[in-house]
């Protein structure tokens, strides 16, 4: 699907830019407080730099927020003082951002929502979404295929949010009836140190663990360190997620502990910005919903998902 978007973009690039007034695209995203968000920030900045060259008639305003309240302020400021024509927003949380984003839409501006949906449907013109239930499902299906005879696993969850709940539900549905048993589940908060601690305690608590669903590559790193330190050889593999470059590299190198990964590309923000730019500058239809699926990465296709320049 990602490739599709680029194809559409390439088509519009060929068209001569009509001489028109400068238009402003506001971009509001959470600050780089963890690895994935860091990657997302990188891709947003990179997209802005690139598109400013491609579309001289477009201005971009990029704001990062460390909490939902700050993000609301950012959006209100963009509307009031920067006179934006379009807003690309990755909401920190759904509920608090719904009202302010709806106000932007009511003012007749184009609204693109990324990743996290708003609490109310139909506000946005374009929704570029990651597939969270799919992310969990792909991970679960891989677990089932890797352990056809079943087994005992532990799972680490992220920060308690809708995203995390959808992933876990997708995962649980996928492994249902397969003979895989989840011994324990705790929050590692998408954080290496927290997941290290949680995994140490899991290892103390359960004498036999066959595999770990770490659900995120940052957490997988903490989990791997804890297993290595404990010297336990019962754990056959750890399945992370989101496609951090170091972990993709280990998969590509056939590391038995990291046999696979599930993508949740932070570059979806770039997709959203590009599509919004296309929507503003051309007649190509871009409204609607654009779901970026989660893909299973294995040693065979790992090279396609390795981006050495990204911080993530």
């Amino acid at each position: 699907m990602r490739h599709l978007a680029y194809a559409a973009l390439a088509a519009t690039l060929a068209m001569p830019a009509a001489a028109q007034e400068t238009q402003v695209i506001g971009i509001s995203i959470p600050a780089a407080t963890h690895g994935w968000a860091g990657g997302m920030n990188y891709h947003a900045q990179e997209a802005v730099d690139r598109l400013e060259g491609v579309y001289p008639q477009l201005d971009f305003v990029l704001a990062t927020a460390s909490d939902p309240a700050k993000q609301v302020n950012d959006i209100e400021d963009m509307l009031a003082t920067r006179d934006i024509d379009a807003l690309v927003v990755l909401p920190f949380e759904s509920e608090p951002l719904t009202g302010p984003v709806a106000a932007v839409a009511d003012a007749g501006k184009w609204v693109t929502v990324v990743d996290r949906g708003l609490a109310q449907e139909g506000i946005e013109d374009l929704y570029v979404a990651g597939d969270n239930p799919g992310f969990g499902r792909v991970a679960g299906e891989y677990m089932v295929s890797a352990m056809p005879d079943g087994g005992q696993i532990v799972a680490l969850r992220g920060i308690p949010t809708t995203i995390d709940n959808e992933r876990v539900e997708g995962f649980q549905q996928a492994i249902e009836g397969s003979g895989i048993e989840i011994l324990g589940m705790e929050h590692g908060n998408w954080n290496r140190d927290d997941s290290f601690t949680v995994m140490q305690d899991f290892l103390s608590k359960y004498p036999q663990i066959d595999a770990v669903w770490a659900s995120d590559d940052d957490m997988a790193i903490g989990v791997l360190a804890a297993i290595e330190a404990a010297g336990r050889d019962d754990v056959q593999f750890v399945l992370g997620g989101a496609g951090m470059k170091e972990m993709i590299q280990r998969t590509a190198e056939n590391d038995p502990m990291v046999p696979a990964n599930v993508t949740y590309p932070p570059s979806m923000i770039a997709t959203a910005i590009e599509l919004t730019a296309v929507g503003l500058t051309s007649n190509a239809p871009v409204s609607g919903e654009f779901v970026i699926g989660s893909v299973l990465v294995t040693p065979e296709n790992a090279a396609d998902y390795y981006f050495p320049d990204s911080p993530f």
Binding site: A32, A37, G38, N41, D218, E246, P311, F312
Partner: peptide
């Protein structure tokens, strides 16, 4: 530290 790590992780 965020700046040094370019928003990501220093390894």
């Amino acid at each position: 530290v965020t700046w040094l790590a370019d928003g990501g992780t220093l390894s």
